[in-house]
């Protein structure tokens, strides 16, 4: 029997956004990465286009991170040298992008100077050819100074710079405009604030295809379902023509997964939860695969094994399938 399948027709698409810039384009990257452009719900190849695969950005921090030792041991030869760490992520673990986080800039922590941070950025830019995402320490005042300096130092590289938030977006937006970078617009698990922030940023004339949404996901078991539904709703909004929800989405999967108790406690403490190492890897991988189902475009991750599983998952999700 020939069955009439039910295909949805959508009016619009998710924005397509390019990260990085090659020499010809004014940067120094050996490749660029394109995300977004979907004209259907996640991986509905049977009724729309999924032109670009979701990508994995692996995290590098400017100072030794305070991570679970079992996670950190994958990087023990490199975690004091961000450039080498980034190279290992790309060459050994298959990272599509590097997410460089300046935890060391925090005035309440190591309080690294803006100049030192810019030097770290240069080190990483020279070590790898993939595009970079950079993110600050969370202190607004310091991050604004830092991101201005970083935007200028890497002018033309088309970085993805975070985080612009509802009450602190102007400085970073202006820096991205002047030096031709893209921006992460971060909203606290709230679709209205998400939209509002995109409006505010675009009113400063940053083009829509230079904005990425960070919906502030929760980790598996810690409110991830709120993010799941917000992402499903924003994809539906984008497809129905809401331009202010049409940006690609970035999810800080590694950060959220590895701050949960379930990823970290030992089997001695919780024998009924099984071994820590595979539990931790899966806590991150399952967070990632759930977010892929909801429409994530960029996954920021940590554990090499979780990255490997996620990339395999993406390969399978990207297999074309049609009813024709």
């Amino acid at each position: 029997m020939k069955l009439q399948v039910l295909k949805e027709k959508y009016r619009a698409k998710v924005q397509e956004l390019v990260l990085g810039a090659t020499k010809e384009e004014g940067g120094t990257r050996s490749c660029t990465v394109t995300v977004g452009g979907d004209s259907c719900l996640p991986f509905h190849h049977f009724e729309g286009e999924v032109p670009n695969r979701p990508v994995v950005a692996m995290e590098v921090t400017d100072i030794k991170p305070n991570w679970n030792p079992k996670l950190l041991k994958n990087f023990e030869d490199v975690f004091e040298k961000p450039g080498e760490w980034a190279r290992k992520n790309v060459e050994n673990f298959g990272a599509d992008l590097i997410y460089l986080k300046f935890d060391g800039a925090d005035p309440e922590g190591e309080d690294r100077s803006v100049e030192d941070c810019v030097e770290t950025l240069q080190e990483v830019l020279q070590a790898v050819g993939v595009p970079l995402i950079v993110s600050g320490c969370g202190n607004e005042e310091k991050d604004n100074k830092l991101m201005e300096a970083i935007a200028e130092a890497a002018s033309g590289e088309n970085l993805l710079i975070g985080n612009a938030e509802q009450d602190n977006y102007k400085t970073i937006t202006a820096a991205c405009m002047v030096h031709k970078h893209s921006i992460i617009a971060k909203s606290p698990l709230d679709i209205n604030i998400c939209k509002q922030l995109n409006i505010l940023i675009s009113e400063m004339n940053l083009p829509l295809n230079k904005i990425v949404i960070d919906p502030s996901i929760g980790g598996l078991g810690y409110g991830i379902e709120y993010a799941y539904s917000i992402m499903e709703r924003s994809r539906l909004g984008a497809l129905q023509g809401d331009k202010m929800l049409s940006m690609p989405i970035i999810c800080t999967v590694g950060y959220e997964a590895w701050r949960t108790k379930e990823a970290n406690v030992s089997e001695d403490e919780f024998p009924e939860w099984g071994t820590q190492e595979e539990r931790g890897v899966l806590w991150e991988a399952v967070t990632a695969s759930a977010m892929l189902q909801a429409g994530a475009h960029i996954l920021v991750m940590r554990h090499p094994k979780a990255v490997e599983l996620t990339k395999r998952n993406i390969d399978q999700l990207m297999q074309p399938f049609s009813y024709e």
């Binding site: 595979e278 189902q293 395999r312």
Partner: peptide, 29 residues
């Protein structure tokens, strides 16, 4: 581990039963 990731997609997209082989706590939790 890959099996669990596959099951995540099935559970998310409307499966009412998912049949799998691993019996380990750290995979199923």
């Amino acid at each position: 581990l890959a099996e669990i990731n596959q099951a995540v997609a099935y559970i998310s997209k409307y499966a009412s039963i998912v049949v799998l082989k691993t019996l380990e706590k750290e995979h199923l939790l």
